[in-house]
């Protein structure tokens, strides 16, 4: 994708981004993947590995804006658990770039091809969605109320242990946004 096109996509949504950082992230993408995450293009990417992680995360969780501090925490935890993680992320991003894989088809494609990258999307989505990195005895909590499963329903529910509201407020019809 031409860099001026990326600039235009990003600029239409956020004009306050450091252009050099934006180009770094944009350089990791093709027109196809950039179309999945136009907002994410506007996010700062301090270096290529983290940039690739941010881009892949945005594609997998289907969100355009990701919490940078949490992204760093998740990235560091996943790298600590698996030194090959940065390479794997680059490889999966490249695969999606080259083959224009729809996120909805991704797991099926990886499983069908017995790809060594097959566990990766679940690890990344699990980290963002549950705030948990790793599994079994090695599982670690990196987020709770800022994990996406809490954020996505925050207009209706509070995460367990947080007070919903004054006594009886839960009797009203939930005021969910569609």
């Amino acid at each position: 994708m031409a860099s001026e096109d990326l600039d235009r996509v990003a600029a239409s949504r956020n004009t306050l981004v450091d252009p050099s950082r934006r180009r770094l992230l944009a350089g990791l993408l093709t027109a196809y993947t950039a179309s999945l995450i136009p907002w994410a293009l506007a996010q700062p990417a301090p270096h290529a590995d983290r940039g690739a992680f941010t881009a892949l995360s945005a594609i997998l969780v289907g969100r355009q804006v990701l919490d940078t501090a949490l992204a760093n925490r998740i990235y560091d935890a996943l790298v600590a658990a698996n030194p090959h993680f940065p390479t794997d992320v680059q490889a999966l991003l490249t695969l999606i770039n080259e083959r224009h894989i729809d996120p909805q088809q991704l797991q099926g494609v990886l499983d069908g091809e017995h790809s060594p990258l097959a566990p990766l999307p679940r690890q990344i989505l699990g980290a963002w969605a549950l705030g948990v990195v790793g599994s079994g005895k090695d599982a670690r909590c990196v987020a709770y109320e800022t994990a996406l499963d809490a954020v996505i329903v925050a207009d209706v529910l509070k995460p367990p242990t947080f007070a919903y509201g004054v006594y009886g407020s839960w009797s009203a019809k939930p005021n969910a946004e569609e």
Binding site: I59, G62, Q104, Q107, P121, R122, A129, L130, I152
Partner: peptide, 23 residues
């Protein structure tokens, strides 16, 4: 939310469909 999120991860539901299905 927790159970549904675990189900979606298990099913490999990614992209914008994830939040939509979760809700």
């Amino acid at each position: 939310v927790l159970n549904v999120t675990n189900d979606l991860i298990k099913e490999g539901v990614y992209g914008t469909e994830f939040a939509k299905q979760l809700r």
